[in-house]
């Protein structure tokens, strides 16, 4: 463990807590893409199957349980509990255009042709594009609540910090995973536009309005 990965995981944890608090306090899921949240639930489910087969640490296991659990609670909030506030008319990204290519790529490009490894690879590739429905929704509605912007900033920061973690691990531990690094770069690049708007607007008290 290193400071970059720890802060990255905390940023990821914070993002999830911000989202849940927004939903619970405002009793609304307005502006949140249910499709992205479903993709995140798939990401965690396919990535953490080793939860039962290999034990790394209490931290690792508890974080995995938390991420899987909260991802399903979030999907439940959107599609059941707060369904009347779900804005399905603006959440129209065709996720099959993500899942099919990512599934095919995971099948072709992976470290080992085994079920667990292909599912892990699928999860890594899927996570890199899972935020697209959410960013698409923000661009369609033309704006995002500031709490949603904070959620996206924390979520985008987590993988950017993981990039620093991989640089650190490469030089100090000789650890290198090309698949995770490439997907992490794609994932972080997708947030660049948002990061720019967040830093230039939200931090000055303005609202975000992605070009519609």
């Amino acid at each position: 463990m290193n400071i970059f990965r720890l802060v990255g995981d905390m940023s990821h944890l914070l993002a999830i807590i911000i989202l849940l608090m927004k939903m619970w306090k405002s009793r609304s899921v307005a502006g949140i893409s249910g499709k992205s949240q479903i993709l995140f639930a798939i990401v965690f489910t396919t990535r953490y199957l080793d939860l039962f087969t290999s034990f790394v640490s209490i931290y690792n296991t508890s974080m995995k349980v938390f991420f899987i659990g909260t991802s399903y609670v979030t999907v439940y909030f959107i599609y059941q509990h707060f369904k009347p506030t779900y804005d399905s008319n603006h959440d129209t990204f065709r996720v099959e255009f993500l899942i099919v290519p990512v599934g095919g790529l995971a099948f072709l490009v992976n470290h080992e042709f085994s079920l667990l490894e292909i599912l892990w690879t699928f999860s890594i590739y899927l996570e890199s594009v899972a935020i697209l429905p959410q960013l698409f929704m923000v661009s369609k509605t033309g704006e995002a609540e500031s709490i949603t912007s904070h959620y996206l900033f924390a979520l985008g920061s987590y993988r950017a910090l993981y990039l620093l973690n991989w640089i650190y691990r490469y030089y100090f531990e000789g650890f290198f995973d090309l698949i995770a690094v490439v997907a992490g770069c794609v994932q972080t690049i997708l947030y660049c536009d948002f990061f720019y708007l967040y830093i230039t607007k939200v931090l000055k008290g303005k609202k975000i309005s992605l070009p519609a």
């Binding site: 790394v56 650890f175 995973d177 995770a180």
Partner: peptide, 10 residues
């Protein structure tokens, strides 16, 4: 520099 067999990252 193969990646660690056991996935220790989240």
């Amino acid at each position: 520099k193969k990646e660690a067999r056991v996935k220790d990252e989240l």
